[in-house]
Protein backbone atom coordinates (compact mmCIF):
# COMPACT_ATOMS: atom_id res chain seq x y z
CA UNK A 1 0.00 0.00 0.00
CA UNK A 2 1.38 3.35 -1.01
CA UNK A 3 0.95 6.39 1.16
CA UNK A 4 3.32 8.63 -0.78
CA UNK A 5 1.99 12.15 -0.95
CA UNK A 6 1.83 14.44 -3.94
CA UNK A 7 1.91 18.18 -4.18
CA UNK A 8 -1.36 19.96 -4.90
CA UNK A 9 -1.46 23.60 -5.93
CA UNK A 10 -4.91 25.17 -5.90
CA UNK A 11 -6.19 28.72 -6.10
CA UNK A 12 -9.21 28.82 -3.83
CA UNK A 13 -11.31 31.97 -3.60
CA UNK A 14 -8.40 33.90 -5.07
CA UNK A 15 -5.70 32.60 -2.73
CA UNK A 16 -3.11 30.07 -3.84
CA UNK A 17 -2.50 27.10 -1.55
CA UNK A 18 0.14 24.40 -1.83
CA UNK A 19 -0.30 21.23 0.17
CA UNK A 20 1.03 17.69 0.16
CA UNK A 21 -1.70 15.05 0.26
CA UNK A 22 -2.29 11.46 -0.75
CA UNK A 23 -3.48 11.09 -4.36
CA UNK A 24 -6.74 9.59 -3.10
CA UNK A 25 -7.57 12.66 -1.04
CA UNK A 26 -10.89 14.06 -2.26
CA UNK A 27 -11.17 17.72 -3.21
CA UNK A 28 -14.03 18.05 -0.69
CA UNK A 29 -11.79 16.81 2.13
CA UNK A 30 -8.94 18.99 0.89
CA UNK A 31 -11.10 22.12 1.06
CA UNK A 32 -12.60 21.21 4.41
CA UNK A 33 -9.76 19.70 6.34
CA UNK A 34 -6.57 21.02 4.70
CA UNK A 35 -7.85 24.56 4.11
CA UNK A 36 -10.52 24.77 6.83
CA UNK A 37 -13.18 25.85 4.34
CA UNK A 38 -15.96 23.87 5.97
CA UNK A 39 -18.81 25.58 4.15
CA UNK A 40 -18.56 22.89 1.48
CA UNK A 41 -20.49 19.96 2.91
CA UNK A 42 -20.29 16.25 2.26
CA UNK A 43 -23.64 14.53 1.93
CA UNK A 44 -23.22 11.35 -0.09
CA UNK A 45 -19.74 11.04 -1.65
CA UNK A 46 -21.42 9.78 -4.79
CA UNK A 47 -22.21 13.04 -6.51
CA UNK A 48 -25.94 12.66 -5.97
CA UNK A 49 -26.90 15.19 -3.32
CA UNK A 50 -24.97 18.28 -4.43
CA UNK A 51 -24.06 19.52 -0.96
CA UNK A 52 -20.38 19.59 -1.94
CA UNK A 53 -20.84 21.64 -5.13
CA UNK A 54 -18.09 24.17 -5.84
CA UNK A 55 -17.04 26.13 -8.90
CA UNK A 56 -14.07 24.53 -10.62
CA UNK A 57 -12.54 26.89 -13.14
CA UNK A 58 -15.82 28.77 -13.12
CA UNK A 59 -18.20 25.83 -13.63
CA UNK A 60 -20.02 23.76 -11.00
CA UNK A 61 -18.45 20.48 -9.98
CA UNK A 62 -18.97 17.95 -7.22
CA UNK A 63 -15.97 18.25 -4.95
CA UNK A 64 -16.61 14.71 -3.67
CA UNK A 65 -16.05 13.34 -7.17
CA UNK A 66 -12.62 14.84 -7.73
CA UNK A 67 -9.25 14.11 -6.27
CA UNK A 68 -7.42 17.20 -5.17
CA UNK A 69 -4.38 16.15 -7.20
CA UNK A 70 -6.52 15.75 -10.30
CA UNK A 71 -7.50 19.43 -10.27
CA UNK A 72 -4.13 20.79 -9.16
CA UNK A 73 -3.53 24.07 -10.93
CA UNK A 74 -7.23 24.91 -11.10
CA UNK A 75 -9.19 27.73 -9.61
CA UNK A 76 -11.86 26.80 -7.10
CA UNK A 77 -14.61 29.00 -5.70
CA UNK A 78 -16.47 27.85 -2.59
CA UNK A 79 -19.41 29.26 -0.66
CA UNK A 80 -16.91 31.29 1.36
CA UNK A 81 -15.77 32.93 -1.88
CA UNK A 82 -19.30 33.62 -3.02
CA UNK A 83 -20.09 35.22 0.31
CA UNK A 84 -17.25 37.67 -0.19
CA UNK A 85 -18.46 38.66 -3.65
CA UNK A 86 -20.86 41.61 -3.51
CA UNK A 87 -22.12 40.99 -7.03
CA UNK A 88 -23.55 37.64 -5.93
CA UNK A 89 -25.21 39.00 -2.80
CA UNK A 90 -28.72 39.02 -4.33
CA UNK A 91 -28.69 35.23 -4.33
CA UNK A 92 -28.07 34.85 -0.63
CA UNK A 93 -30.39 37.76 0.12
CA UNK A 94 -33.18 36.07 -1.80
CA UNK A 95 -32.62 32.77 0.01
CA UNK A 96 -32.80 34.65 3.31
CA UNK A 97 -35.94 36.65 2.58
CA UNK A 98 -37.79 33.69 1.08
CA UNK A 99 -36.89 31.25 3.86
CA UNK A 100 -35.25 29.03 1.28
CA UNK A 101 -33.19 27.12 3.82
CA UNK A 102 -33.90 25.30 7.03
CA UNK A 103 -31.12 23.08 8.37
CA UNK A 104 -28.70 24.74 5.95
CA UNK A 105 -26.67 21.66 5.14
CA UNK A 106 -27.57 21.57 1.46
CA UNK A 107 -27.63 25.37 1.18
CA UNK A 108 -24.05 26.10 0.09
CA UNK A 109 -24.49 23.61 -2.74
CA UNK A 110 -27.74 25.26 -3.81
CA UNK A 111 -26.11 28.68 -3.74
CA UNK A 112 -23.18 27.48 -5.86
CA UNK A 113 -25.58 25.85 -8.32
CA UNK A 114 -27.63 29.04 -8.46
CA UNK A 115 -24.54 31.17 -9.16
CA UNK A 116 -23.83 29.18 -12.30
CA UNK A 117 -27.49 28.74 -13.22
CA UNK A 118 -28.21 32.46 -13.22
CA UNK A 119 -25.08 33.14 -15.26
CA UNK A 120 -26.32 30.66 -17.86
CA UNK A 121 -30.01 31.66 -17.51
CA UNK A 122 -30.38 35.30 -16.50
CA UNK A 123 -34.18 35.29 -16.91
CA UNK A 124 -35.39 31.79 -16.15
CA UNK A 125 -39.01 30.69 -15.87
CA UNK A 126 -40.17 28.34 -13.10
CA UNK A 127 -39.70 25.20 -15.18
CA UNK A 128 -36.12 26.19 -16.00
CA UNK A 129 -35.40 26.88 -12.34
CA UNK A 130 -36.70 23.45 -11.37
CA UNK A 131 -34.55 21.82 -14.03
CA UNK A 132 -31.55 23.84 -12.94
CA UNK A 133 -31.91 22.79 -9.31
CA UNK A 134 -32.94 19.20 -9.84
CA UNK A 135 -29.57 17.70 -9.05
CA UNK A 136 -29.30 19.27 -5.64
CA UNK A 137 -31.24 17.54 -2.89
CA UNK A 138 -32.88 19.39 -0.02
CA UNK A 139 -34.75 17.37 2.57
CA UNK A 140 -36.17 20.29 4.58
CA UNK A 141 -37.78 22.94 2.42
CA UNK A 142 -39.79 21.01 -0.13
CA UNK A 143 -38.06 23.30 -2.67
CA UNK A 144 -41.03 25.70 -2.84
CA UNK A 145 -39.16 28.60 -1.30
CA UNK A 146 -35.88 27.78 -3.03
CA UNK A 147 -37.62 28.06 -6.38
CA UNK A 148 -39.10 31.40 -5.33
CA UNK A 149 -35.73 32.61 -4.09
CA UNK A 150 -33.94 31.79 -7.33
CA UNK A 151 -36.65 33.59 -9.32
CA UNK A 152 -36.28 36.63 -7.08
CA UNK A 153 -32.49 36.51 -7.27
CA UNK A 154 -32.70 36.48 -11.06
CA UNK A 155 -34.61 39.75 -10.92
CA UNK A 156 -32.22 41.33 -8.46
CA UNK A 157 -28.89 40.31 -9.93
CA UNK A 158 -26.84 43.07 -11.54
CA UNK A 159 -28.34 43.32 -15.01
CA UNK A 160 -31.49 41.49 -13.89
CA UNK A 161 -34.99 42.78 -14.32
CA UNK A 162 -35.44 44.17 -10.83
Amino acid sequence: MSFSKVEVRLTVNGTEYVRSVEPRYLLADFLRHELGLTGTHIGCEQGVCGACTVLLDGRTARSCLHFAVQVSGSEVTTIEGVSADESLKPIQDAFHHNHALQCGYCTPGFVMTTVEFLKDNPAPDEAAIRRGLTNNVCRCTGYVNIIKAVAEAADNMPGGEG
Binding site: L37, G39, T78, I79, S83, F95, H96, G104, Y105
Partner: peptide
Protein backbone atom coordinates in the same frame (compact mmCIF):
# COMPACT_ATOMS: atom_id res chain seq x y z
CA UNK B 1 -36.45 36.27 8.23
CA UNK B 2 -34.34 33.85 10.17
CA UNK B 3 -31.29 34.82 12.10
CA UNK B 4 -29.49 31.52 11.63
CA UNK B 5 -29.41 32.20 7.89
CA UNK B 6 -26.55 34.63 8.54
CA UNK B 7 -24.18 31.78 9.21
CA UNK B 8 -25.87 28.91 7.39
CA UNK B 9 -26.02 30.78 4.07
CA UNK B 10 -22.43 31.91 4.04
CA UNK B 11 -20.59 28.70 4.81
CA UNK B 12 -20.05 29.63 8.45
CA UNK B 13 -22.40 26.96 9.76
CA UNK B 14 -20.68 24.62 12.17
CA UNK B 15 -21.91 21.05 11.88
Amino acid sequence: PRREDAWLLTGKGCY
